[in-house]
């Protein structure tokens, strides 16, 4: 117990790092749900693709240096590699998100709600299995993701912060603040909120709802793709299957915070990360085990939903005036 308490501050720091990652994914679920009331089950796989595509780009452009330096780069090369990883994830995942909406969901826009839901599950399987086929075909069953930065512990105010967490602490807040600005202050953000609240009234204002929906999928997918890069850098591996569980936990985070609510998704993500990290740290002292992390997350979800069925910050259900 002592050991658990002693390491608690560090545990919370780690929880914050993975929580921010979950939050980034959760935002995509919540944005899409807010507008279409659709749970985009393929979203976790877009997250996975962010890690995968950036892995491919890093191998292609920095393969030689990465190989020679055990995955670690320095100076300008490091900055370039990180920018490249996020850029590739942004462009490719944004594109994937656009294509999924345009060709899988849009034709079902007026169909009963179950149709797009089942389609989403189908898209998820298609992406996962396509990547699996590629992985088996090329013999890349275990993709080691380069750590890029030197793995070390940085002491800050008595805390021990792993260097890999620094990337999360820099990128995730930028993305989140950027999203809040986009949704809160820009013309497109206002169109997104208007469409989420009353789609027909939004059309009456001359808002091109199809464009808004496409844009929403792109934004959500970009955030997920960036989270994929963060995940891969943090855990130094990526494969076809990681999107499922991470996606499920991020979805839980979105529901926990109140689905459709942007700040709720951020809060939910952080909570899920902390719960997971805390349960994981009990492992060391009490032998409870990481296998309890997921049950604990869902236990928290159930407890919250019993008392607050719409999540912590409240679901943004369209209120008819």
């Amino acid at each position: 117990m002592n050991q658990f308490l002693q390491s608690l501050p560090d545990t919370l720091v780690q929880g914050l790092a993975i929580g921010m990652m979950y939050a980034l994914i959760a935002l995509g679920y919540t944005l899409v749900y807010g507008i279409l009331e659709l749970i985009n089950f393929a979203h976790g796989d877009v997250f996975m693709l962010g890690g995968l595509f950036s892995w491919a780009a890093l191998q292609h452009f920095f393969g030689a240096q990465i190989g020679a330096n055990y995955g670690v780069l320095g100076g300008g090369t490091l900055v370039m590699a990180i920018i490249l990883a996020f850029l590739i994830a942004t462009v490719s995942c944004g594109g994937v998100g656009f294509v999924i909406e345009r060709f899988a969901y849009r034709p079902l826009r007026n169909a009963p709600k179950l149709a797009p839901l089942v389609t989403a599950i189908g898209v998820s399987f298609i992406i996962e299995n396509a990547v699996l086929v590629w992985q088996t075909g090329t013999g890349n069953m275990e993709l080691t993701y380069p750590s890029l930065i030197n793995q070390q512990i940085i002491p800050v105010l008595g805390l021990h912060i792993p260097s890999k967490a620094i990337i999360v602490f820099v990128t995730a807040p930028i993305l989140m603040v950027g999203l809040l600005y986009l949704v809160g202050n820009t013309r497109m953000g206002k169109a997104m909120r208007a469409t989420a609240q009353d789609q027909e009234a939004a059309r009456m204002m001359g808002i091109d709802v199809n464009r808004v929906i496409s844009f929403t999928f792109i934004v959500g997918s970009v955030l997920a793709g960036c989270a994929g890069v963060i995940y891969a850098l943090y855990y130094n591996s990526i494969d076809y299957s990681v999107g499922f569980l991470a996606g499920l936990k991020a979805f839980t985070a979105a529901v926990l915070g109140g689905i459709g609510n942007i700040r709720g998704a951020m809060l939910g993500g952080l909570l899920v990360g902390e719960v997971e990290s805390i349960v994981d740290s009990i492992d060391a002292s009490q032998g409870v085990g990481l296998q309890w992390a997921e049950p604990a997350v869902f236990l928290v979800l159930m407890c919250v939903l019993i008392f607050r069925p719409t999540g912590l910050l409240g679901a943004q259900v369209v209120d008819k005036a």
Partner: peptide, 23 residues
């Protein structure tokens, strides 16, 4: 001016007006 007003209830008054000028 739609039936039932259809203002964007979770947006501010000025945001609603800005949306009127969306195009």
């Amino acid at each position: 001016v739609p039936e039932g007003r259809r203002v964007f209830s979770r947006m501010s008054v000025s945001e609603n007006l800005e949306l009127g000028a969306y195009v």
